[in-house]
Amino acid sequence: MTDATRAAAAPLLARIGAWPGRVRPPRWRRHRIGLHAAALALLLAVLFPFGWMVQMALRPPGEVLDGALLFQPTLENFAALWQGHFPKSFLNSVLVSSLSTAASLALGVPAAYVLTRWRFRGRGRVALWILATRMAPPIALTIPFFLAYRWVGLQDSVVGLALIHMTFNISIVVWFMQTFFAAIPRSLEEAAWIDGCGVWQAFRRVTLPLAAPGLAATAVFCFIFSWNDFFFALILTRTSAVTAPVAITNFLQYEGWEWGKIAAAGTLVMLPVLAFTLLVRKYLVRGLTAGGLKD
């Protein structure tokens, strides 16, 4: 191809997306390709440990630490988990997280509503003290909790652990939900009062449905915080209420580390977090309040 024909063909080729030798892509497009490459590299770096764990979980037990790229995937590690105590621990985790989330919402949501809507003395201070409960390092609270629990008999119980998780989740609920409630115009509640609602009914029929996406996101955060807790679960449980993250450490033993089970259990523990994170993303972008008021 001569230079002349190449030049003549350039506009057409550019339009169909092919770039002849000397015609360079426009600057914005080059810029975007670079950006995508950087994002992809970052993604791979972040996902690598997870991917590595998942592939370990799928290897035959004898070859878990084998470096070979090609292997026959198997569910043997998961089956081995199913035989032992792990399903019980997983169930404990589900119970503790669900219970603590439900309790935190039941107490925290009305508290957040009152802190947003009612003007009373010391309102700001109350809100700050609720947040302050989250600031204390867990280790500072562990020994008092441990002693108190031994005394009241809540040690090594699902309810006891859920209660502890509730204490640190309430502050999350109160602070998250205050923002969501504040975004709902007061006049909607006032309209509901005039339409015949009492304060509680207006909250239940108007405010809460409008705050539902925020409520869902908050619930997921509470669940994940409780699900991920290792520290309190390690100190306050022994046998019957052990949660999944603590159970994994039981695979690190004197006789050797059971890498296959560790990887399989890690993969299972990660699944709900992954699922819920996707859920939160969906809820957070949805704006329900659009259109009720003149903008």
Binding site: P185, E190, A191, I194, D195, L288, K294
Partner: peptide, 20 residues
């Protein structure tokens, strides 16, 4: 008497329609 028991209706400046 609370608003709900006054048997009145009100049209708000910003309409205050229930968006959901």
């Amino acid at each position: 008497v609370p608003p709900k028991d006054r048997d009145i209706a009100m049209v708000f400046q910003n309409y205050a329609l229930y968006p959901h």
